[in-house]
Amino acid sequence: MDFSIDEQMVVCISRQVEDGEILAQGIATPLVMAGYILAVATHAPNAVFASAIGQGLCYGWGPLGVATIENIALGNAVLTMGFVTIAVDVLPIIRPKEFFRPAQIDAAGNFNNIAIGKDYQKPRLRLPGTGGIPDVSIKSNDTCFYVPRHSRVTFVEKVDFLSGMGYHPARTRGSGPIYLVTDLGQFDWHEGQMRLTSYHRGVTVEHIQKKTGFELLIADDVHETQPPAAAELRLLREEIDPLGVRTLETLSGSARRDLLRDILRREAAAYKSVSSSRRG
């Protein structure tokens, strides 16, 4: 069965989830959300979502959306706390699994979501900011990453600003990142260095090295990534993400804009038909 790269990444994320885990769902990360939901719908039915939307805990899921994105978290929430309580009191105790999307990352897993460029006052590109990354990464034992477009823009010798901590000499708590999936392959960290463990179908090790701005370690047993199963693809396409929201993360420019417009149109049609059937 043919599959696209976003589907391969979703399945990789899903396979990282263990049953019963608490899964932190960040802002605007539909690939991760699709992966989590796929895990719950297959091998991890007892996983719990800790959602940035609603700042609470929820069970259950529905199809991914853009305009109606709150429906999954707020419609299924069993507890909502607000950001102050969840950030200070709850997340540090329950320590959910979380996937971050770095704008830059180095071999040691240090990462940057502040700005690209050397001059902080006038950067080449100001980024949205760090969320809670400088708060949690410095004590994490199990940070996970995903990068939908693997390139030397993201994989750099040295990050311009360090907002997330990897295997770093200044670290006094926790250890560092353990997992990364990109559109080219999967990685872990060996003695504090990023290491390629599998390459996706049709991708060579040489190509991945070429797209990476530092020397990669290659695992002895490096192999092709296990492709999505037919049942996983069916769930993903028909039930979890029929609108294709996950694909937005792998596109840029006008292709991304066109898809976003198309998703909004189809989502609005679906929303209207649900609203009118409720009224009727």
């Binding site: 950001f83 102050v84 200070v88 502040i114 006038k122 950067p123 590109l125 969320g131 809670g132 708060d135």
Partner: peptide, 17 residues
């Protein structure tokens, strides 16, 4: 932000909370 025309004070979830 790119032009340095606005003062940006970096906050995080913890610093705000």
């Amino acid at each position: 932000g790119n032009r340095g025309e606005i003062t940006i004070i970096e906050e995080t979830e913890m610093s705000i909370a």
